[in-house]
Structures are given as C-alpha cells and as structure tokens.
Amino acid sequence: MPDDPLEDALREATFAETSAMSGPPDSLRQRLDVLRRAFSPDTQFKSVTSLQIADPAHAPGAFALTSATTVGTAPKNAICLTGQFISRKHCSLRPIDGQWLIEDNDSTNGLYVNGERVTSRFLCDGDIVQVGNVPMVFLKGEQGASGPSGTLPLDEGS
C-alpha cells in the first residue's frame, strides 16, 4: 500500500499538545459575549486605555485611564460609581512601566477580576473588573494597533 502523506501526518501529529489545552478556557468563552459588546460602534475612548461599563443594567459609560486613578462612591474619586456593595475608596489603578496595576483598597466586598477575587493584578486587555455590582471591561488603547485602512493588518508591533 503506497504511503499517504495525510496518514503520515496523522501518525506524527502530537494531538495531546493541542487537545489537552482545550478544557480550561471555558471561563473566557463565557466572557466573550461581554467582550464583543464592549466593541459596539458607540464604544468610547477606543484610542486610549479605558474602563468600559459592561452591564446593560447600568448606564453606559467609559472612563479614560491616563494616570493613577481611584474608584469608589466618594465624590473625590476620579471614577465615582453608584451602586451596591461599593466602598467609598474601593480600589485604585496606576501605571507601572507600561502596565496597569489594579489594587483593592481593603474594600468591604472585595475586588474581582474575571470572576476571581484579587488584592492586586496587572490588568490584561479585556479583563472584566467587578467593583460591587458594576462590571467594567479594561481595554488597552489602540495606539499603533490599526493597519492599512480596510485591510487585515499584517505588521503587528510587539
């Protein structure tokens, strides 16, 4: 029987390498809906790093992040939220070497990122930050991200 290249490829393929990793990301799969909504045409502050309110039950809104910022119900917070389970000075964000660090300020009900309670975390593009009952999506600014107009950009910067 002559050798079939596809049969050879099947025998040589190490399926365990790719199939073993197919389980864990279900939590992200569930968050994709929220992330897709964050890219609606009326999304604000696309060009700068921001927190986008991600729950249709709350008034739509976005907060641009340009420097160290505090979040809570107290009026003097740069991001002043109204809602349940939010402390007066709930959490803070600050840029460190190009990365954004979010820290819980000993809030009563805690800070959650992607459904997990955290005391601090360097945020990733698309992280869902939950402050009290207000979910927000962290989006990095799009500086240098777009390619030639109307074509798939192939020059991805690092």
């Binding site: 992330l35 964050a38 698309g126």
Partner: peptide, 9 residues
C-alpha cells in the same frame, strides 16, 4: 484573552 480582544478590534 488578549489575542481575542486584538482580533475583536
């Protein structure tokens, strides 16, 4: 996650 967000953009 960041790759998916980049593609959404």
């Amino acid at each position: 996650q960041e790759t998916m967000v980049r593609l959404l953009r």
